[in-house]
Design a protein around this nucleic acid. Sequence first.
DNA 1: TTGCACAATGGCAACGTTAACATTTGGGTG
DNA 2: CACCCAAATGTTAACGTTGCCATTGTGCAA
Lengths: 334, 334
Amino acid sequence: MAAVKKSVSVKDVARLAGVSEQTVSRTVHDSPSVRPETKERVRAAMRELGYRPNFAGRSLRRGKFKTVGVAMFSITGTGNLDRMEGFAAAADKHGYAITLTKVDGHPYTLESASSRMSALPVDGMVVIMNRMPADFGTFEPLPGMQTVLVTMLEHPLCSTVDNDQFDCSRQVVEYLLGQGHKTVHFISCPERSLSGMRREEGWRETLRAHGIEPPQLVRGDWTAQSGYAAGQALADDPTCTAIYASNDAMAYGCIRGLESRGKHVPEDVSVVGVDDSLGDIVPDCRLTTVRFDNKRVGMWAVDKIAGAEGVGPGVEHMLFPGVLVEGDTVRDVR
Amino acid sequence: MAAVKKSVSVKDVARLAGVSEQTVSRTVHDSPSVRPETKERVRAAMRELGYRPNFAGRSLRRGKFKTVGVAMFSITGTGNLDRMEGFAAAADKHGYAITLTKVDGHPYTLESASSRMSALPVDGMVVIMNRMPADFGTFEPLPGMQTVLVTMLEHPLCSTVDNDQFDCSRQVVEYLLGQGHKTVHFISCPERSLSGMRREEGWRETLRAHGIEPPQLVRGDWTAQSGYAAGQALADDPTCTAIYASNDAMAYGCIRGLESRGKHVPEDVSVVGVDDSLGDIVPDCRLTTVRFDNKRVGMWAVDKIAGAEGVGPGVEHMLFPGVLVEGDTVRDVR
DNA sequence: TTGCACAATGGCAACGTTAACATTTGGGTG
DNA sequence: CACCCAAATGTTAACGTTGCCATTGTGCAA
């Protein structure tokens, strides 16, 4: 068992290279006021000793960590992977790192996320909200800690960013109406989902804006099984020629449910989903759906903290619209 | 615009509470050698000033960051979310944080992951390997930086952990043979996938161990579409009564492809997948598959670094077996 | 020769925390 | 009443880095 290697500091490098600590530091930062030959000598010493700058010392001196904290109440969740891709990409761009933390959801409060982060080496934090935190209205971000919430709700003290779920429903409903359908049925999701509720509002209000009274919705639970049941239930409704499901799994389940009752998609009924998550999993159906750019959402959040151009200072609220992707599950009935 | 708030240090708290800095520090760590009333006074001062311990100062003093770095060449990927869940859970358990970094895969080397991490405040690092890094054989971890690779390959200097893909195939093949099938056909995946290749080896060698010469495999690309094509191709082969697909999407595609040629599952052909990823997405089929516990893999990796019981010191290699989950897509033909 | 600008480098202090050691206080024991 | 022990608190120094200012060296114009 080898002896524990004490970490190598600028001092050690300086001694070996025969220069001052300051010159080593300048070399690390590639300052133009160090002679090339001196730099090379210092670099050689760094290589020989295996010098790595100490993050703690540096941060202490600078008062910055160059790190963004991400707090999640639940790691698993649609789009989280893409969002992380965005976090990582934006962080990378600014020379930042990402620190990930799972926050216990009992209680489900922004305060618990915030206090969890407060002891970590981060300059700002992002909180991914799936549900409504108990203290959403009263929460104050830690002083000096820029806080961005990933949610559609606007917060007076924190910047927010998310996909525009309302607009998503508007796009879908207007698309279906544009194809000649008289109304659009809706397969909903559990009521605790913020984004799901916003989709529901978008569906309802867009129909009303077109002078159509929304039909009775069918509540699902995100699973294909619940979509299947919904499809069977809607198959017997003669007014139902277009169905909008809160996610792709339910949309696909719905298609199968309709087929089990002898209804064909898109000949008899048009079906649209949300998420574009079926791509490589289902072989025989190109579902018409809405694609969100979660990576962009993640990037915006980190850009906001790491101070990119294009995102201003101060509290800001951003919603990114999804893109409707036409597949083979909608028919023009005009 | 308010003036920038200088950060509050132990010194400020000490002054306000009328005690020494050391007593403040002791209070923060809830040392038993501080009188309760003193503690309360210090706590009150901390609250009043909004004191938060500075991570950099602490780390500098302690020489530890209590943070594990995770390097990924690609954030998106089957099981990554579950692995992260495991990283976060284990880190939490030990009072550690997770720092996530996306590493550019050009070139795809462990060295690039390692040097990326070297400037970050981490005590150890985990690298998620999807492909074979060019420098796998020659790589040396940074001195003092415990490095764990998530891969099935064993490395002489780094601990490794992953799902046992070989055993996965063994289980599937022996299960199908046990159901009376004379041989097992295989739908493979792109050759650059390490885990996919290991599955292929497992399939081949297990058949041979049972005295069966493996039939020609069909190469897929992970997508349901390729599984569909494979299913159609295999539908005409009279010797094909059991198919093992490298993932669930291809297995599901395969089932649909078989059906398109008039073959029914499981009546005519049995099909098994891997990953247990179809659960809530496909309504009408309970696929027989293998479930991996990626969360456990993630936890093991972080435990190894954060020094949990159950994981020893030094280089260690761990493979976790998957669990075969019986669905409705396999028939007993004995 | 002197003075001066400028390039290259060095010395020092401070960032916030805490381990190790030092000191004070109060209470009990001989 | 001197003594000692333990509890409670204080003092000092060091972790590694870098901003600021001081110093040295070099070439060139006056």
